[in-house]
Amino acid sequence: MAFSPRICQYKRVFRDGDVGCGVATVLVTAGTIGRGGGALAGCAAWNPADPLRIHVLKNSLPPLWLRRFRRRHALELQSHPQLPDLYEQLTQPIPPNLVSLGLAWLDMARQAKHLTPLDPTRLTRWAALPPVWRALIQPQGQLWWVPYRWGTTVLAYRRDKLDWQPQDWGDLWRPDLRQRVSGIAQFREWLAISFRRLGLSINTPPPWPTDDLKAQLQTLHQQMLLYSDKHYIQPLILGDALLAVGWSSDLLPVAQRYPQIQVVVPPGGGAIWADGWVLPSGQSLSAGLQDWLNFGWEPAQTASLTAQGIAWSPFAPELADYEFFLPMDTATEAAYQSLRRWWAVLPPVGR
C-alpha cells in the first residue's frame, strides 16, 4: 500500500513520552511508586513476598488502580508501547507472571501453546460477566483470557479545518476528503466499515456482494493519505489529514491533549477491540495473581476505568451496541483472503 513520504516527519510530531520504543518499568510497593529499579522504602517490611511481575500495554491502566492495589501486593509492572511487544513476552524462556494481550492475538497465542488455561471458578464475578464474553473467550470449554477493558473503532477529525461535522462512516467517502484520511493498516477494519455502509453485519458470511464491496473499498482507497498502525495519528495532528480512522484507545487520549481534534463514534458503532490478561505457559495462578484479576473486576475499579474516558469495562452495558469480530470458518477465511489480496495491490493514490 502507499505510504506518505512525510512518515519520518510524522514520527517527530509527538511530545516526548507520547510514543517510543522503550520499556518503562514501574515498581509499586506499599511505600512508593517509582520508575526504574531504585530502592523503595518500606517494601520488605510490609510485604515480604516477591512482587507480581505483570506486563501491560502502555497507558492501558488507570493510575488509581496502581495506588489502590499497592496496599495489597508489591508489583513489578512493565509497560510496552505496542501489542506485538506483549506477545513477544509470551515466548521468553522466563516469561512474566501475567501479560496483557489483545483479543486479536489470543488464538495465535493459544495455538502456539504459549498460554496456561485459567480456572473461572477463581474469578469472583465470573457469573456476572455478560454471556457474549464467556462464549468468546472459553473455546473448547477452557478459559485462556480474562478481559479488563474494551473499546471500538472510531473517527477523529480536525474541527478547526472542516466546516462540517463527520457523523457517519459514510462521510469517509465524501469527495472533499480525497487523500485527506489516515487510518490503521488493518484490512478487516476497512472491510467492516464497507459492510456497515452496505447495511450489513461485520460478520456477514459469504457469499458476499463482492462487486459492491470492491467498489466501496476502491473509492475509499482514493481517500487515503496513509495506512499505518503506528503513525496514522501524526498526519491528523499536523493537519495533513483531516480525518482519521482508528481505535478509541489511541484517539481518545489524543483528543484530550489536542482540543482541535474531535472523536466521533458513528451510529451503529465499529468493531470491538479488547485487552485482557493471560497466564504464560509454565506459570501458575498464585493467590496474588488471582487477587489482581478479581481486583480489576471490582465495581469500584471498573468505574475508575470508565471515568478515565478511554475504554469500557467488560461489564459495561454499552457492549450490546457493538460487534466483535467472530472467528472465520473456512469459507469466510477464503473469501476474506481473496478480497484482501485484491486490496493489497491497489495502486497508490495519485498514480
Results as ranks from 00 to 15, higher is better:
A2E: 11
S4E: 04
I7V: 14
A24D: 12
L27E: 14
A30V: 09
T32E: 15
C43T: 14
A45N: 12
W46D: 13
N47D: 15
P48Y: 00
V56C: 01
P63A: 04
W65E: 05
L66R: 07
R68T: 12
L75W: 02
E76C: 13
P81M: 04
D85H: 09
D85Y: 06
Y87I: 12
L90Y: 05
Q92W: 11
I94G: 12
L98P: 02
L101T: 08
L101C: 00
R110H: 10
H114T: 15
P131Y: 10
W133T: 01
A135T: 12
L136N: 10
G141P: 01
Q142V: 09
W144L: 05
T153R: 08
K161C: 13
L172C: 01
R178P: 06
F187M: 07
E189P: 04
L191W: 05
L191R: 10
I193F: 01
I193T: 06
S194I: 02
R197F: 09
L200V: 04
P206G: 07
P207Q: 04
P209Q: 08
L217H: 02
Q222I: 02
Q223V: 03
L226T: 04
I237V: 14
D240Y: 02
L242A: 05
A244T: 03
A244K: 00
S249Q: 09
D250M: 09
L252P: 03
P253Q: 06
A255H: 05
V263W: 01
D275L: 13
G276H: 05
W277E: 01
Q283R: 12
Q283T: 07
G288N: 13
D291M: 12
D291H: 12
F295I: 03
G296L: 14
S304W: 06
T306P: 07
A307F: 01
W312P: 01
F315H: 05
E318C: 09
L326F: 09
L326I: 07
T332S: 15
A335F: 08
Y336F: 11
R340L: 11
W342R: 04
L346I: 08
P347H: 09
P347D: 11
